[in-house]
């Protein structure tokens, strides 16, 4: 083995560093691909069979579409959001405190920003990828009414970055692993329930609805619903801008919050 001392190697570009982090997560995730992806794909379908059929016949239609059609975007988003929320809460905690994976990354040209922006991009891409599977199944089922639905994975990408950032933020607050229950059951779950996944947001008290409308999930689900039904609402543009722009400042704050966990 020769150590070549001659060439001075340039520091890899930001793009390459981010890709290297994504590659790391993909490789470790893919090792258990079937186990890992099982729930993400199956959950929305099982929910549909268990609850959707029964409720749908009782409810009929909502907002001018059949109830099953109404449910589709929320269900796609729910599985994606849970998967991301777990990844950047419990998953990140493990990498941080148990396996010390970030320590090994920190002694390479990567910095804190590379590591966590890479992670956020990764969960974004993963979310987009996994959303395509239920999307296709629901499409075959006849529950997708508009070709605009092909943009749903893109919405999932942005939403995952926003939710992932919240996970990083939670890592700053928790003192032990089980405190993530507060994050998942106390924040993510209610966020999902009251963001128009199961019923339109105007059915809940006005004050709550107003708050939820500005939380990171409602605009995403609303936008997905416009895309899958083709019923575009007047708030399309503001929703679109929200979904595309909000993840970035959230990501910035998430990375900023987790920094002191790594640098001591």
């Amino acid at each position: 083995m020769e150590i070549s001392q001659s060439t001075s190697k340039p520091v890899p570009s930001t793009f390459r560093r981010l890709m290297a982090v994504c590659y790391r997560h993909m490789t470790t995730y893919n090792r258990n691909f079937f186990t890992n992806s099982f729930g993400v794909v199956l959950e929305p379908l099982i929910f549909f069979m268990a609850v959707g059929w029964g409720l749908a016949s009782a409810i009929g239609s909502i907002d001018g579409v059949p109830y099953l059609v109404f449910l589709v975007p929320g269900q796609i988003m729910t599985s994606v959001v849970y998967s991301v929320a777990f990844e950047t809460s419990y998953g990140t905690y493990f990498r941080l405190e148990m396996d010390h994976n970030y320590d090994s990354m920190m002694v390479t040209p990567l910095g804190v920003s590379d590591i966590f922006w890479g992670e956020l991009l990764y969960v974004g891409v993963r979310a987009a990828f996994f959303s395509t599977i239920p999307l296709v199944i629901f499409g075959v089922w006849g529950l997708i009414l508009s070709p605009w639905a092909v943009l749903v994975p893109l919405v999932c990408f942005f939403t995952a970055i926003a939710i992932g950032s919240l996970g990083l933020f939670a890592n700053r607050l928790v003192k032990s692993l089980n405190q993530f229950n507060f994050f998942v059951s106390g924040l993510i779950a209610p966020l999902l329930f009251f963001s128009g996944t199961l019923f339109p947001i105007d059915k809940i008290p006005k004050a709550v609805a107003f708050v939820m409308a500005w939380m990171p999930l409602y605009p995403s689900i609303n936008l997905c619903r416009m895309l899958t039904t083709g019923h575009f609402q007047p708030e399309l543009w503001v929703t679109l801008v929200y979904v595309v722009l909000v993840p970035w400042p959230l990501g910035y704050l998430g990375v900023k919050c987790i920094r002191p966990k790594l640098i001591k």
Binding site: P12, R16, R17, M19, R24, T27, T28, N32, D99, P109
Partner: peptide, 18 residues
């Protein structure tokens, strides 16, 4: 990276150096 193989550990790390 406990989940993956010896070679994959090295490949991942090589990526960090571009």
């Amino acid at each position: 990276d406990e989940q993956v193989s010896v070679i994959q550990n090295l490949e991942i790390y090589a990526g960090y150096f571009g």
